[in-house]
Simulated assay, not measured.
Amino acid sequence: MNDARSATQLSANGPLGLSARSGAWKFAAVVLGSLLLTLSSYVSVPMIPVPVTLQTFAVMLIGALYGWRLGALTVMTWLGQAAVGLPVLAGGNGGWVAFVGPTAGYLVAFPLCAALAGWLAQRGWNGRRPWLAFVNMLLGNLACLIIGAAWLAALIGPQQAIALGVTPFLVGGVLKSALGAVTLKLLEREQDRNRLRGDA
């Protein structure tokens, strides 16, 4: 009974239980999350008008691990770093120009997608149910593509936006969603092992 209650509490606070941690823990999580997002930006395949990166993978993973509030806050912190000119975006870019260019819609979508991933993860769509975790990640990736393409359509037209801002990223979105689900499963398994060691 206690184990079930503990698992439920962890789920309610996010898979890492960060919502129940101290302010110092949360601050450290935001810093580490921002670093992960920056590193994911540097794994980039240049394309026009939108590059392929691991950003969506990192955004969704942070949301699912941190919970919807802290996940969204972490992504917004990273975007704030970009807005003031730090080289945290794809290709080492930064500055306000990124928020009015072709990728602006995707950037705006990121905190919303992190919040969605966290909200669903806190309701059981997490590593304890890998298929639901996969669907969680996939929904976030699709939401990012839809919002990003809507902005892109205003710049280059709907047909071009779909051809250049959605279609090339569909397979990658599925693969990144699968990788995210596997990562969540492995982290949950390791968490269970640590809990068992602590109970022993």
Rank of each mutant, 00 (worst) to 15 (best):
E190I: 05
R21G: 06
P15K: 01
K176L: 14
A24C: 09
G91V: 02
I146A: 10
T74D: 08
G63H: 09
M60D: 11
M60F: 10
V30G: 08
L152R: 03
G17T: 13
A72P: 03
M137L: 07
A12H: 14
L184G: 01
G71W: 15
L186S: 07
L70S: 11
L120C: 10
K26M: 02
L155A: 13
F57L: 14
Q191K: 12
A149Y: 06
K176F: 01
L120K: 03
R129P: 13
T8D: 15
L164M: 14
L54N: 07
A90V: 09
S19K: 13
G85H: 06
N2Q: 05
L175R: 12
A28R: 12
R193P: 00
T77Q: 00
L139H: 09
L187P: 10
G105N: 01
L35V: 14
V52C: 01
W125L: 07
A181D: 10
F169S: 11
R123P: 00
G71T: 08
Q160A: 15
V30W: 05
A64I: 07
T183R: 04
W68G: 05
V84N: 05
E190A: 04
Q81W: 11
T183P: 06
A12C: 13
A163E: 15
A114D: 06
L35W: 09
D192P: 01
V43G: 04
V100G: 15
I48K: 10
L155I: 14
F134N: 06
G33R: 13
G118R: 03
V100F: 05
V43A: 15
W25H: 15
A181G: 11
M47A: 15
P168G: 03
V108G: 06
N2D: 04
Q55W: 02
F134R: 05
L132A: 05
V182N: 00
S19I: 07
L86E: 09
L89V: 04
G85A: 00
Q122M: 14
A133Y: 05
L138V: 11
G124P: 00
G157E: 08
T8K: 14
Y106T: 05
Y42A: 01
L32D: 06
L18S: 13
T74A: 03
G95P: 01
G95Y: 00
N136A: 01
F99G: 02
N2A: 09
